[in-house]
């Protein structure tokens, strides 16, 4: 029964990883951009929530009302102002520019918030739990996180497949030149994609901050989890990304159960095994 518990906790942890990964998967899908600063932007959202929560005495989950629009705007400006300049045939500029941004963000956060470990204090909800079967209980927050991940991905599926903007995302991803002939301004569409990506990142950052301690140095680790979930799930598939997050969460949870020092290592090793066995991930997109 303990193992069942371990797996269930891992699945719920996977919800958080899926939230980390969704934004990364989305921008790769739309513009083939791999944002190395993605993890650091998650931490930016956590600190933004901290600042808002402490500044206005708000509950951390209420700060979402401010942090999500803030990150949405940041994403638009970041893409329009900097990252659009890096897109092209050469993979080096986007990679190195986002890598540079990652270092800039980490050190900027250090400068403003110091290296101290922080946490978003959510009060009673942090310790609330639900009894399910066989004496296993699950935390309310992890459940909320998992449900949020499912809702976000369902929402993005609707956005992608039921709206004109979604068609524009997919058309631009297929063939940016022809998309322009349709009157689609690629720079604007890419900026909107990054804005949506960072809106999801905002949610991920707040839920991360409520769940665990964070400090300016943890961004790269979150990037790696996000990246692993995306690759495990298969590039460009949002539901695959959720599956990838869950597999990573379960692997980490099992690793931690064996030895707390093995948690992260177990996740990485699960990723590498899947990479060797199924290089294109579990649910690769049909059209590539």
């Amino acid at each position: 029964m303990q193992w069942v518990d371990t797996v269930i906790q891992g699945v719920l942890l996977g919800g958080l990883y899926a939230l980390f990964a969704t934004g990364l998967s989305l921008i790769f899908g739309v513009m083939r951009l791999v944002n190395i600063a993605h993890g650091d932007l998650i931490v930016v959202a956590s600190f933004a929530a901290l600042a808002v929560a402490e500044g206005f005495g708000m509950h951390p989950l209420i700060t979402l009302l401010a942090v999500v629009p803030l990150m949405f705007g940041l994403g638009y400006v970041l893409q329009r102002g900097i990252l659009n300049l890096t897109l092209g045939k050469d993979i080096l500029p986007p990679l190195l520019v986002t890598f540079g941004l990652s270092i800039i963000i980490q050190n900027g956060l250090l400068e403003v918030f110091t290296a101290d470990s922080q946490k978003l204090k959510a009060g009673a909800i942090e310790t609330m739990s639900l009894q399910i079967f066989g004496g296993i209980s699950v935390g309310v927050l992890p459940v909320i996180t998992f449900v949020a991940a499912v809702l976000v991905i369902a929402g993005l599926q609707l956005l992608f497949f039921r709206t004109m903007l979604g068609s524009a995302f997919r058309a631009t991803s297929d063939d940016p030149d022809t998309a322009r002939l349709m009157g689609i301004d690629n720079r604007h569409v890419f900026a909107l994609a990054m804005a949506v990506s960072l809106a999801v990142v905002a949610l991920a950052g707040v839920l991360l901050g409520v769940r665990t301690n964070f400090d300016p140095s943890i961004g790269p680790g979150r990037l790696l989890y996000a990246f692993e979930a995306v690759i495990i799930g298969g590039l460009g598939s949002l539901w695959g990304t959720l599956a990838g997050g869950v597999i990573l969460g379960v692997a980490q949870s099992i690793g931690a159960r064996i030895d707390p020092g093995l948690q992260i290592l177990a996740g990485h090793i699960a990723f590498l095994i899947i990479l060797i066995v199924r290089p294109r991930g579990l649910f690769p997109r049909a059209v590539d």
Binding site: A168, R170, A171, D174, M182, G183, I184, V287
Partner: peptide
């Protein structure tokens, strides 16, 4: 455009509708 250049990820109808984007 030459070579038709329909968007492969879009259905036929979505291809038509995106023509009215602007």
């Amino acid at each position: 455009p030459e070579g038709r250049r329909l968007f492969p990820s879009l259905t036929v109808e979505e291809n038509l509708r995106i023509g009215a984007y602007a």
